[in-house]
Design a protein around this nucleic acid. Sequence first.
DNA 1: GATCTATGTAGAT
DNA 2: TCTACCTAGATCG
Length: 267
Amino acid sequence: MPEGHTLHRLARLHQRRYAGSAVEVTSPQGRFPAAEVDGRVLLRAEAHGKHLFHVYGPDATVHVHLGLYGTFTEHPHPVTEPVGQVRMRVVGPTHWTDLRGPTRCEVLTDGEVAALRGRLGPDPLRRDARPGLVFARVAASRRSIGVLLMDQAVIAGVGNVYRAEVLFRHGLHPLTPGHRVDRALWDAIWADLVLLMRDGVKVGRIDTVRPEHLPAATGRAPREDRHGGEVYVYRRTGLPCLVCGTPVAMAVLAARNLYWCPVCQPE
DNA sequence: GATCTATGTAGAT
DNA sequence: TCTACCTAGATCG
């Protein structure tokens, strides 16, 4: 679930369901200090990159990072007994939500929130994002574009799926050094990330394949990936590239699986 | 039922 | 570069 689009989608949902109301906040599992915000009015829910914030007031913001496994479930009333390890439960006027398995779930002061957000790069899903700041970092770097796109301090919210797919869509090999990416190419990549990630927020999954760009004669059609979307290369190791038919390559880079088409994305 | 894998990150080495 | 964290779905037998 969790690349940036998931968190923005959750923020939007939580804003609609819970903001403006006093909510009951508990930690059935006991590993989250829920009493600090229990019974208070949720003022606002927002996301920056893969981080979710529930703002209750000055120095009272719940910060959630889902990590690899974290999930929220959402239900209408009535409220039922917790099942399994529930880190945080939020009960609003009409609905309630359970959080399981997050990497982080904690109450932060405004200073701590500012420090955290200061460590995050621009987020393609935020209107206040400045893509030029990202380009400056990319253009000055000898690290590969594949590594830079995953560095949350450079650009926030991109994960392994969006990385693989956006590089494919621009014919860029993941190991291309950042300083080889020119401004026009970067602007196109950023615009594409905005498009893809906004679509992800809207539909709740990652779809990146443009059917009109597939060779009609081959009869190749995108298959739904296990993550629920339609993609060109992510987790398609050894399968024929949807555009040229070459087997999709895979390698491990900085402890993450990297996927690309050796022909459509030449080194 | 056991085992494997993952859309992530921090901290140790 | 490695390990721990911690959960669920897919896959294996």
